[in-house]
Design a protein around this nucleic acid. Sequence first.
RNA 1: GCGCCCGUAGCUCAGUGGAUAGAGCGCUUGCCUCCGGAGCAAGAGGCCACAGGUUCGAGUCCUGUCGGGCGUACCA
Length: 689
Amino acid sequence: MWGVASSVCMSLASDLALKELEAQGALEGLSKKEAKQKSSGAAREKALALSAAVAARIEAEGSFKTVEAVNGYINITFDENAVAARLLSEVLAAGADYGQGAPKSGRVMVEHSQPNTHKAFHIGHLRNTMLGIAVSNILAAAGYEVLQATYPGDIGMHVIKCLWCYECFHAGEEPADPTMRGRWLGDIYAESDARLSYRKEVLAFLHLLSKEDQEFVAAIDRLLKLLWRKNTEGEDIAYLLGRLTTQTEINADQLREQDVIAKFWPIIGDFLRDAVANPKPYVPVEGVPEPTTTPEERLATWEDLNQHIDWWVPSQGWQDQVKATFARWEKQEPAIVKLWEETRAWSLSDFERIFNEVGARFDVWFFESQVEDEGKEIVRELLDKGIAEISQGLPVVKIDEKLGLTTETYRTLPILRSDGSSLYATKDLALTKRKLVDYGVDRAIWIVDVRQSLYFEQIVKVLELWGFEQARQAAHVPYEMVVLPDGVISSRKGNVPLYEEIRDQVLARAREIVREKNPELAPGKQELVARQVGLGSLKYAMLARDNNRIVTFDLEEALSFEGHSAPYIQYAHARASRILEHSGSTIEELAAKAGTVDFGVLSAEELALLQAMAAFPGEIEKSAAEYRPLLIATYVYELAKSFNEFYHDHPVLKAEEPVRTARLVLVAAVRRVLANALGLLQIDAPDEM
RNA sequence: GCGCCCGUAGCUCAGUGGAUAGAGCGCUUGCCUCCGGAGCAAGAGGCCACAGGUUCGAGUCCUGUCGGGCGUACCA
């Protein structure tokens, strides 16, 4: 049955019941709540009576197939075959455009995919890229003119660090395979980060030991005396001893001989190994907080740091070397600029390859390096206009103050470093101005993770203060991070799941499954299907979770092509394609017959499919309004599920006419909508798999 | 301190005021002589974190509490 239900009688009845009891004086002396409780029983009876009466009146009209009153609801049904014929004709006539909304005014620019050059493109970036593509597709389907923009971070402190590390430790090196250069550069960056944070980590570890390991503190005296015998320098040891026993942080600058730590280091390892080998029960001490780490964890941290203990002494000068490299960049020294250009191109060619692979097509490529100078000019302009001011030695916009807010809301946005170099905000102001002015964008959208929510609110407010009316429509689409089952993605912990590595594993698994499930397929076709299914699965995993949910990336789950996944949906599409292929009719022939379909009495499964297809344009609207691809991801899964249920229970090719034709038309329409919805998610719909 | 997000089945998640709260995974059990079993069907599994409130009606809206995560002037 196809129809609508109305709860109007329920609310009417509740009003009526209350008024009647009031008139009778039955509510005298009762509190509001008691009165309502008393009336609710009466309301239910009234709703039943009312709905029955209203249903009888509507039925008498004769415009509907059936009209019934159930539980106080009025249920109305339509002539199913007539409605089905209209819908199926519409779907098949529109084809790839079914779901496409009427053109809407307003040019939208979706900025997404802001990976940093000189760093690895990882699974977290994939979520951003997929969200950006899907939001763009959905907005376009809703009728907007959409431009997609990418904004690689090709300059900044991370680039300088990477260049420093390359020059000092890897000059002239280059991987043999040119497609590996970007990834290799990412490793260099990770190494620079590890080198530069090494001192801090060692000191933090010593501090942690002194705080958490009472045995260690007790043993320090003995340990250091041991060291004393090997080392003539006593002053540094006294310093270390003092710091560790009083559990205060160590300042490496206070050491006269840098190698004291390195000499002390193996002795700590001996102690930690002994503590693990001969465990002692934990005895709580009054006033001492419980340790947050176990002896095993402490030993593991020591082992990690021990791999690079030879960094300790030279690392003293590394920070200064990085500063010097930065100065060379600021002066645009030719050698460093050349190195930057060369290495930047390595990363960008990786990005292009990845974007191409996942179907990201950009109308505009912005680069941070392009908007630096413009940004600095804007800072001057904002200062001149009195929107920005110098505070604590740097230009800032005190937003709350400028807006006259007394409660802390937008706070203060620094727009340039005190040394005159640019910040992210410096560049974003210039970039957004460019979008609004040069590209005539009415609505600028940023797909950026949720941690930058406050930052984008600040940018929008500064643009408004600056006088850009369009800023009111600008929108940050926040989304949560991708984490791993064992914690956050961290280059330090070395647990960064690179996109290309994950992709390789997913494709390998997909090839295996295709060979197993469909061995007759030609090898070339197998490879194509493996890519469609493998990449589809990966993409769907990124989109089938709401924006504000943290995605825990589980490789095992990504490698599973069953259940709630892209392959499930693609399989439904392939089955529909096969049925049509065997039908002897073309899509065009079926489309021509759509207006006269006769299902006889519609089954629940057929009805579910028709209703789902009718809902598609509305789902697009909603998804576009809320920037939520999840709605489409859920929708297309449910449509596929309904289709699987349908063809299992109802023969199509073997059905008697006219039902056979009606069902074929239905299959053709469902196949179309499945493909269209998958298309919004940038997922392919294979005809066989 | 202030602000934002999350808390629903063993696990991962849908459900943005309506009828008996749903999927997937995992577990138990059926279904390939029938358009392809990447599938279908059935079963077990829930004080929707807690406490108030608004409403005829609350997983959904409001207030508070607890637990977890993230922001909060020179990182991006």
